[in-house]
Design a binder for these strands. Structure first.
Length: 267
DNA sequence: CTGGATTCCTGCTTGC
DNA sequence: TGCAAGCAGGAATCCA
């Protein structure tokens, strides 16, 4: 599922289209559209000025017209040469560029969506700080956990607290911080908040370096798999042995999400 | 305000 | 072998 590292990898892969002009947009499904402040066809003839990322959102700017994309859990967004035939199913949107490429938005489960908007503010405003932003400090994280009874796992999945973590990197970050996922957020000490802060940044940095995690659906901007699954410590490994201590990893459900952890390494 | 439950959707996995 | 049921999950929404 595309979390921050996957979306960042896609952003980088697609960035060579910046400066190209969108010649035509095909919108094959209307129900993926979450906002329509302008007609999608108005993008034709406009230059793609930038591709940005905020949390798990991609923001493409076309001179005051924005196209925001969220990939949900099975979404893909990748390029093909313009003349290449499309054999795949569930391709809901195609952006034809004048540089000889087309960008395909594909999403089987349709948890994702797109926004045609003149103002990205309302969509992005609700997001907390980027993990790599200076605003994401140890103090911010620690203070945010005060008086919060929810499990720390659920807490760091909350996009209004930190933008970009999904189920995989939440579990991996808590393992790296040696913190049990079910602990109430408010139970973290300052040193533990510091560990978690460092772990989140470390895990995401490594995952971006590995071009993301491909368990099943995820592909990058060129429809290629990521490599971080080879470095995964706990996610999807319940019953297998911990790479650090050899104890059997466990799986529980927290906040309706599969949660993987080491009962020995994490306290 | 907080937090829990529910909903959306399809494809892979599981069990008979 | 074939089919139905179970399950996964990001974010919005509803409700207590």
């Amino acid at each position: 599922m595309p979390e921050l590292p996957e979306v960042e990898t896609i952003r980088r892969g697609l960035s060579f289209n910046i400066g190209a002009v969108l010649s035509e947009i095909e919108l094959n499904r209307q129900d993926i559209v979450r906002a329509r402040d302008y007609e999608p066809a108005e993008l034709a003839g406009r230059c793609l000025e930038d591709i940005d990322r905020r949390g798990k959102y991609l923001i493409m700017s076309f001179g005051g017209h924005f196209l925001i994309v969220h990939l949900g859990m099975s979404g893909r967004f990748y390029v093909l040469p313009e003349q290449e035939p499309i054999s795949e199913t569930h391709v809901h949107m195609i952006l034809h560029m004048d540089n000889g490429y087309k960008m395909l938005y594909k999403d089987a489960r349709r948890f994702g969506g797109v926004w045609f908007t003149a103002d990205p503010g309302p969509v992005l405003r609700k997001l907390g700080p980027e993990p790599f932003d200076p605003a994401f400090t140890i103090e911010y994280l620690f203070n945010a956990t005060r008086n919060r009874k929810v499990a720390i796992k659920t807490f760091i999945l909350n996009q209004s607290i930190i933008a970009g973590l999904g189920n995989i990197y939440a579990d991996e970050s808590l393992f790296a911080a040696r913190i049990t996922p079910s602990r109430p957020a408010s139970s973290l000490s300052m040193p533990e908040a510091q560990m978690l802060h460092r772990a989140i940044i470390k895990v995401l940095t490594q995952a971006i370096k590995s071009c993301g995690t491909t368990f099943r659906d995820y592909r990058d901007g060129f429809n290629q798999e990521g490599q971080f699954q080879n470095l995964i410590q706990v996610y999807g490994r319940s019953g297998e042995s911990c790479k650090q201590c050899s104890a059997a990893l466990e799986r529980v459900v927290i906040g309706g999400r599969s949660t993987h952890f080491c009962p020995k390494c994490q306290k």
